[in-house]
Amino acid sequence: MRLILICLGLLLALIGTGRLPAQTLPQTLAFAEAQLALGQYETAIKAYRRVLYFGGDSVGSAVFAPLADCYLATGQARQAQRYFNLAYAQTRDDSLRNELLFRKVAALLLAGQDGLAEVDLLSVQANTPYFRQKLAFYEGVTAFQREDFDRAERAFLQAIDSVAFPGSPQVVRRLFAEQARLRRFNPRKVRWMSVFLPGLGQLYVGEYRYAANSLLLTGGLMALFGYVFVNLSLIDALFSVMPWFQRYYIGGYQHAYRLAEEKIQGERHRIFQQLLDEMTSQIPGKATD
């Protein structure tokens, strides 16, 4: 549908400016649009930059936002933010400004600037159900990134369509309950468990192989310490075995701490992806998008 519209636009543009040679300002703009729609972002950026240079301020409203989109798609978040800002400054329409803010927020989130994203969301004029839903989604994502899970849960519950999908709130609540339960894998607690008994913290986070590994390694070194002490001397045991025991005992509980962090990271990743799955499943006409 989108491609057909672009082709139609290009055709009409060519008819409308038929007396001109190809590669005029509007045709370059149309070409840039077509490249953007095809996902050829680098080519689109070059064409947009050309239009911007020759068209000056008069083309800004048509160029800034899609150029920012191109930069966003190519991972150039700073440039994307710059052009979203320019587009925002040129626009007086509240609805368009909202859309630009959402795209800028996406750019900020992808650049890891969650705090700035949160600030920009405050400027959204959520005066229609459409914008309220969209704002709730971005608030949910931003709060999740900032690990403010209570606010994220409230926002996601607002963002979902609980009328058409009555089971959805339950899914969101279940996922956030799972997130809350991750507190039991507090890395400091897990580390202390392994301080008391090597491998215990690893066992607690479900890393059975590493639990056995830590227990056997430190246990083996303790046995070696005893063997050297009995058969050689205490000095030999302290000098030759003790440093190794200390190294792997400390390493064991440090590893338990990292495993707890990884456990939380992995589970949080799963929960966030499932939240997005839930959102995706509710998109109207998803199959044709």
């Binding site: 989108r2 636009g9 001109l20 050309r50 048509a62 989109d69 368009l96």
Partner: peptide, 23 residues
């Protein structure tokens, strides 16, 4: 989608386009 609308509007409402070849 809105970008497309914008584009078409600009293409039609460009009243005094100079016949310039940007390339």
């Amino acid at each position: 989608m809105m970008r497309l609308i914008w584009l078409m509007l600009i293409l039609f409402s460009w009243p005094a386009l100079p016949a310039q070849d940007l390339y």
